[in-house]
Structures are given as structure tokens and as C-alpha cells.
Nucleic acid binder design. Structure first.
Length: 204
DNA sequence: CTACGGATTTTCT
DNA sequence: GAAAATCCGTAGT
């Protein structure tokens, strides 16, 4: 029940990305509550990171929220069709963020199944169950997150993060996905995930 | 199981 | 005008 504090996000995105693993991402809306466990993240390290939207200090309308305070959502549209959810990290003026790439459904699973496939969870095939939330675009569909949720306070009461249970897990560091254009940055091990978790989008 | 191509439209150049 | 932090269906192993 404890909401993660804003101070938590006021650090380099690499640290925040690692430590977000195992915490709960919650979306409360329209009278329902969707709870999921964060199992895969990527760090985007701002002006020095060729894969980041804020590389070189680019400051457009889209990325403006990244330059604000930590602990706010950054949601953008990718490939003209899919939404991706990030959380802004580091202090005001330093445009870091953490992409949420995979979550494990915890509560509101039938609603998530409906959002994704228009079916009840127990009507899904095996691969549809895994496909519910094992990717950045997929989890946004399941959790009903789109660009209308850009700039929300994740220390607030609609879209927020709470402390995890104390289950132990191993963390794997890996290359980020889908950034082959980013020259040397493509090889940085800035993706983190919970070892052996089913809802990780891409395993090594 | 892996590999490939098409979908679709905002965003920035 | 081109590219994009992705997903899905189809075809082949």
C-alpha cells in the first residue's frame, strides 16, 4: 500500500530502472483497479544516450515532461499505433526516463484480458495469456494507458507505483531492444529484467 | 520454434 | 518526406 516516494525517482535512470523491478504498477480508473508487477525495464540516460528521445538535449513538445520533476509519466506513440509508458527520472532539467517493457498481471486480470482480446482470461490460449503484458505496447493496451496519461504524477492516485512484496529475485542486465540506429549506445546493458519471469518480452 | 513483412500516423527534419 | 524505444499474422523448419 505504500506509494513509492518522489525521491526514489530522483536518481540516474539506470538505478531507478533496476530498483523498479518487483514493484507494483497500478492504474485506477473508471471504477476499476488494475495491478501489475514490473518485471522488465530499460533506462534512457538523456543527453548522452543516442537511443533516447532527449539525446543531445533535444527538447520538443513531446519530450518536455522528461525535463520536469521526477516521478511523472511519459507516454508516447510508437510506430503510429502503440503507446509506451515511461517514468521520468532524475532531477528537473535532466531528461532521464525508464521504459516499462514487461509486467506480470496481479489484479483485474479479466479486465486486462478484455482490453487486449475482448475475452475473459480463462478463454485465452496459452500464448495469449503470456502475450497479455509481455511488451511495452501490450502492457499499455492491457492497463488501458495511452497518451492521455502523459504527464501524470506516479506518486498520485490514478497511475502510480507501490512498494513490492519482499519476494527475492535475480536481476539480468541486457542490451536494449529496438534501438539498432543508436550506434555505440545499442550495446549498453541498460535493460533489466527479473530472471526466469514469463512476462519478460525478450530473453537473452 | 524462428523469420519476415505489413500495419499506421505522429513527430521531427 | 522518412523514421520510429512495436505487434501480429503467416509461412517455413
Amino acid at each position: 500500500m505504500n506509494i513509492v516516494s518522489r525521491e526514489f525517482y530522483n536518481r540516474d535512470s539506470i538505478i531507478v530502472a533496476k530498483e523498479l523491478l518487483g514493484k507494483f504498477l497500478v492504474h485506477e480508473s473508471k471504477g476499476y483497479k488494475l495491478v501489475s508487477r514490473i518485471v522488465e525495464t530499460e533506462a534512457y540516460m538523456g543527453v548522452i544516450d543516442k537511443a533516447a528521445h532527449s539525446y543531445g538535449g533535444r527538447r520538443t513538445k513531446r519530450v518536455e515532461v522528461m525535463y520536469g520533476k521526477p516521478g511523472f509519466s511519459y507516454v508516447y506513440l510508437i510506430y503510429g499505433m502503440y503507446n509506451c509508458l515511461n517514468i521520468v527520472a532524475n532531477q528537473e532539467g535532466i531528461p532521464h526516463c525508464v521504459l516499462i517493457r514487461g509486467v506480470e498481471p496481479i489484479e483485474g486480470i479479466d479486465i486486462m484480458a478484455n482490453n487486449r482480446y475482448n475475452k475473459a482470461y480463462d478463454q485465452l490460449t496459452r500464448s495469449q495469456k503470456i502475450g497479455l503484458t509481455n511488451g511495452p505496447g501490450k502492457l499499455c493496451m492491457a492497463l488501458d494507458i495511452d497518451r492521455n496519461h502523459n504527464g501524470l504524477d506516479v506518486c498520485g492516485d490514478e497511475l502510480y507505483v507501490q512498494e513490492g512484496d519482499n519476494e527475492a529475485f535475480d536481476v539480468v542486465s541486457a542490451k536494449r531492444i529496438g534501438i539498432d540506429y543508436a550506434e555505440e549506445a545499442r550495446d549498453f546493458l541498460w535493460r533489466f529484467y527479473i530472471k526466469d519471469n514469463k512476462y519478460v518480452s525478450v530473453k537473452i
